[in-house]
Amino acid sequence: MDQVVATLLNTMSEQLGAMIAVLGAGIAAGFAGSGSAIGIAIADEAAAGVMTEDPGKFGLALLLLALPGTQGIYGLLAAFFAILKVGLLGGAAVKVTIWQGIGIFGSLMPIAIACYYSAVAQGKASAGAILLISKRPEEIGKAVILPAMVETYAVLALLLSIILMNSIKL
């Protein structure tokens, strides 16, 4: 009986590590995606308002609306890295301990948190930029740069997540 319990616990601990990493991947993709959806919705409202009066601004507005969407992509990218690392997407099966799983989970947190908040903030910045182009369409270059500044922090978070993940030896 004791041997059965020991085998079960051993199997669980082997899989638990991978599952914690998968949980981290899910959170990273989910939070970053949610942030992007909220950010785009904020910018969408502004774009819809401007386009009601001036449908010709669709092209310019689209460029600005797309900006908060990138965080969702970063989250997905980091999640892919994580599940590749634990060998869930083909390749040889990798044994992941609980501590390694927790490490991968932790490495995904910068991308999950920074992408969520930066996407929402970028949505607000994009909405402001859409107001700018509603009055001065010739300033589209500057209008894109302003919300793009927010992007920096999502990129830094992605970079950190990748470095942290790579630092965990399986």
Binding site: I42, A46, G49, V50, T52, S134
Partner: peptide
């Protein structure tokens, strides 16, 4: 205030007139 995104943007565009 967040629900004023559309309103403000539309009024901004109306300001051009």
């Amino acid at each position: 205030a967040e629900s004023y995104g559309y309103t403000v943007a539309r009024l901004r565009a109306m300001e051009n007139r």
